[in-house]
C-alpha cells in the first residue's frame, strides 16, 4: 500500500503523519509512507485543503484531521 500525506507543514499535517505511522505500526500493515510538501505535487491531487491523506493515489481525507479510528478503517485495519 502506498500512503501519502499531503501538507505544507502545518501542525495538523505533522500530526496526521505521526498518526498514520503509529497506526501502520500497530496494525502491522506493510505500507510505503511518504510526506508530500511540494505544493505543485499537492495540487495534482486537486486538493485545496491540507492535511490530506492519499492512499494508492486516491484522496481519502482532505482538510481535516481524521480520528485514529477513521485512519484505522481507511488503512483497512480491523
Amino acid at each position: 500500500m502506498k500512503i501519502e500525506i499531503l501538507g505544507t507543514g502545518c501542525a495538523k499535517c505533522h500530526k496526521l503523519e505521526e498518526m498514520v505511522r503509529e497506526t501502520v505500526k500497530a496494525e502491522g500493515i506493510s505500507a510505503d509512507i511518504s510526506k508530500v510538501d511540494d505544493i505543485k505535487k499537492i495540487m495534482r491531487y486537486g486538493v485545496m485543503t491540507t492535511p490530506a491523506l492519499v492512499i494508492d493515489g486516491k484522496v481519502k481525507v482532505a482538510g481535516k484531521l481524521p480520528s485514529s479510528e477513521e485512519i484505522k478503517q481507511l488503512l483497512g485495519g480491523k
Binding site: 505544493i39 505543485k40 495540487m43 495534482r44 491531487y45 486537486g46 486538493v47 485545496m48 486516491k58 484522496v59 481519502k60 481525507v61 482532505a62
Partner: peptide, 14 residues
C-alpha cells in the same frame, strides 16, 4: 507564473 503551470488533478475523494 508557476501558478498557471500547475496541473491540478480532478478531485477524486472517495
Amino acid at each position: 507564473e508557476w501558478v498557471y503551470e500547475i496541473k491540478t488533478g480532478d478531485f477524486q475523494m472517495a
